[in-house]
Design a protein around this nucleic acid. Structure first.
Length: 425
DNA sequence: TCTGGGGTCCTAGGACCC
DNA sequence: TCTGGGGTCCTAGGACCC
């Protein structure tokens, strides 16, 4: 059987959030920097430990064992001297967009996987890029990908790494091995050898739960999983066993978009049409109904505002609760398509009543809109509710979400008689 | 060392319809 | 009236990713 050529490239920005912060403040260069999800202003007043986690850690701070996903409390114990910065998604997004646009000049077949990661398919591009200096077609692709990462650095100022392989999964693993600022090409047929010594967790799709189960079966490395009996593995992976094992042998699908079902639709801002959600963990667990309802209201307004900004309405509303003992539950309901807090909030209140069966304090509240669809604004131009939303959204689009708070907590009917607004000072 | 926030996808049972 | 099977929607929960 002829070997498949490695033409799938995974491009990942190294410590992306930290790199952007350094672009904006060069004095952070070479220093231990941690970007984490917390509000320094609120944290200052709290005597409790911080509740956020590390979103991005510079290589200077990884030396001390700090990793992304780790709690900030733990990070502070390991690296008290590090510089802690809050996560600023809106600041990073334009940089991610620049990288995407640059990468799209290289091949028309690209897929965005996350804010700092994308896949490129170079199938059929070998002759287009070939130069006499290249030993073979693989060398051509490797050289072109190096040129891409160099260009991301020189034009945008961001360090990146890339992995090239015959499938998405292996390209992603290779990219991880290439970091920082590296490019690694895995030749067709060499996949198994590359993966075999790695811990099981390194393969995309194997998370903490599968890792625990595999380790309990005595399987510690990807090589051991590749060799394991499929009947045994079915206890861990169920129906995806065959796909995982084939992937480990380098026999995964050799085109983009096949290893995972089709990607969600992306709008012009690179956002998916799938769902919109917001959740918040209290600085201190609370059972105060006024606080709980106040947060629920604010989360509801946020998701509805974002849905209107995208011109979509939701058919499914979901409430998520996490109790102080970490028990997490969700309650959802199908509604007439809506992006109005005046319609969504009463539903959320009912869901809250239904879900709040334990007297324990709450740790987290979340709100999600899903089953999203585009709606026809023309039909609603003169609708009273639409006009209210337009007025509110105009202020918020100019001055940010927090510029206005809508007094919603008394909203019980679908269309309130009177709407009160309070402008924040 | 108690565990964020924004997502996607998958599974599974029950309701309902044909 | 009884029985069965397939398809689809709704709801809840969970794994995984960055």
């Amino acid at each position: 059987m002829a070997l498949v050529a490695p033409r799938i490239c995974c491009l990942d920005l190294d410590t992306f959030f930290v790199s952007v912060e350094r672009l904006l403040d060069p004095s952070l260069q070479g220093k231990p920097v941690i970007v984490g999800g917390f509000d320094p202003e609120r944290a200052k007043d709290s005597k409790r430990p911080l509740r956020g986690v590390v979103t991005a850690a510079s290589y200077e701070v990884r030396v001390y064992g700090v990793r992304s996903g780790m709690s900030l409390t733990q990070a502070q114990e390991l690296a008290p001297h590090a510089i802690y910065l809050p996560t600023r998604h809106d600041v990073y997004t334009p940089y991610a967009k620049q990288v995407r646009e640059l990468a799209e000049n290289y091949t028309p077949l690209t897929q965005v996987a996350s804010i700092d990661e994308m896949f490129l398919d170079f199938s059929g591009c070998e002759r287009l890029y070939h130069k006499p200096c290249d030993d073979d077609a693989d060398a051509t692709i490797e050289r072109v990908v190096r040129q891409l990462t160099d260009e991301v650095q020189s034009r945008i100022g961001l360090p990146s790494s890339a992995g090239i392989a015959t499938s998405r999964s292996v390209a992603k693993v290779a990219c991880g091995l290439a970091k920082p600022r590296g490019v690694l090409l895995v030749q067709g047929g060499a996949e198994r050898e590359l993966l075999a010594p790695l811990p099981v967790r390194k393969f995309p799709g194997i998370g903490p739960v599968a890792e625990r189960k595999l380790n309990a079966l005595g399987l510690m490395t990807l090589g051991e999983v590749a060799d394991a009996d499929a009947t045994l593995l079915r206890k861990v992976f169920g129906s995806t066993t065959r796909a995982i094992q084939r992937g480990l042998l380098g026999m995964g699908h050799h085109e983009l978009g096949r290893e995972r079902p089709a990607f969600q639709e992306y709008d012009s801002f690179g956002l998916t049409l799938g769902s919109i959600s917001h959740e918040h963990t209290f600085l201190e667990d609370s059972r105060d109904p006024a606080r709980v309802e106040g947060l629920l209201c604010s989360l509801c307004e946020r998701v509805c505002w974002r849905a209107r900004g995208r011109g979509v309405k939701a058919r499914t509303v979901t409430l998520k609760l996490r109790y102080t003992d970490f028990q997490t539950l969700s309650r959802s309901r199908t509604i007439r398509p809506s992006a109005s807090e005046f319609e969504v909030f009463p539903v959320l209140r009912q869901l809250l009543q239904r879900a709040r069966t334990r007297p324990l304090p709450l740790r987290l509240i979340g709100v999600a809109l899903s089953n999203l669809g585009h709606h026809d604004e023309q039909l609603e131009l003169f609708d009273e509710l639409t006009q209210v939303h337009q007025a509110v959204d105009e202020v918020r689009d100019d001055h940010g979400f927090d510029a206005l708070r809508v007094a919603l907590s008394k909203a019980k009917s679908k269309k309130p008689r009177r709407t009160k607004f309070a402008r924040r000072t």
